[in-house]
């Protein structure tokens, strides 16, 4: 009598619901077809427009431009990180003047376009050439590169200060009190208790800030720094070949997507202990 095993195999499953041609499905397939056609068009355009002489001449320039972009962003983010600490502390301090100064700083740099700030420093400080000459700083402000680094650092410092402040304030007060009751010094508390917890909160905004800086750094091309965008514009103005812009777009997209996935990965890793 082996009928006991048989029913399990012959139980009548309800038939899978038929996938109907709903409006959404048709629309989705049409839109995917559009994307597919665009991708194919892009690929065939780039394939047909491929010229070895152009590649040989401009590929090294794009690479050096990419290097300049990454250096600019890296240096600015680091300087901004250093500057952001005192600004965040002032913003949280009980001293009214310090808090007001930090608030004004952050408000100014977050409320005006990076392009305007860069112009203000690069072109604007040229108005003070005699004074800058007198204190020997003119050689610094004459160079577009240094002006860009300065503008970007000041700008990202304001954003990073807000990220840092938000992260530190997101740690509950009880953590400070707990550490104090264990007899930890305030600095020890900050370094060993508060900061590790704050950085988990801050990671994603920091990642976004780096991505924003990479995208924002394209504007230095306007003040004659030959970053990736600058090289692209130079190549376009010489060849009038639209593929120059398309290659830049592909490179920028690749960097941003890589960064985004890296941040996702790091976040998953450092929050493993929080997952249940």
């Amino acid at each position: 009598m082996n009928t006991a095993a048989a029913p399990a195999a012959s139980v009548e499953m309800p038939p899978p619901p038929a996938r109907r041609w709903t409006r959404d499905r048709v629309l989705g397939l049409v839109l995917m077809a559009v994307w597919g056609a665009l991708a194919l068009g892009l690929a065939s355009f780039l394939f047909n427009a491929w010229r070895p002489d152009l590649f040989e001449r401009y590929a090294p320039r794009y690479l050096s431009g990419l290097g300049i972009t990454l250096t600019l962003v890296g240096v600015s983010i680091l300087i901004g990180a250093v500057l952001s600490v005192p600004i965040a502390l002032m913003r949280m301090s009980k001293n009214r003047f310090a808090a007001a100064f930090a608030y004004g700083y952050v408000y100014f740099f977050r409320g005006t376009p990076l392009l305007a700030q860069t112009f203000l420093i690069y072109y604007g400080l040229g108005s003070f050439r005699p004074q800058l000459d007198a204190i020997g700083l003119w050689t610094f402000f004459r160079e577009a590169w240094y002006c860009a680094v300065l503008a970007f650092s000041l700008n990202t410092a304001a954003y990073q200060a807000e990220i840092l402040r938000g992260a530190i304030q997101s740690v509950p007060k009880g953590q400070w009190e707990g550490a104090a009751s264990l007899g930890l010094h305030r600095f020890q508390t900050f370094w060993k208790i508060i900061l590790p917890q704050a950085l988990i909160v801050a990671l994603r905004p920091y990642g976004n800030e780096i991505i924003l800086m990479i995208k924002g750094s394209a504007i230095v091309a306007i003040i004659t720094v030959y970053d990736l965008m600058g090289e692209t514009r130079r190549a376009y103005s010489r060849t009038f070949d639209f593929q120059t812009y398309l290659w830049a777009a592909i490179i920028y997209l690749a960097i941003v997507e890589t960064l985004r996935n890296a941040v996702d990965w790091v976040e998953r890793r450092i929050t493993r202990h929080l997952k249940r």
């Binding site: 995208k215 920028y252 997507e257």
Partner: peptide, 29 residues
Amino acid sequence: QSEEKSLRLAANIYTTIFRGLPELLTLFL
């Protein structure tokens, strides 16, 4: 937020492209 997978994918591709490109480059493109 559609239940249709292809529609979700198409929408996500749009976001990925325009969120990842520098605004200046989008403007030139």
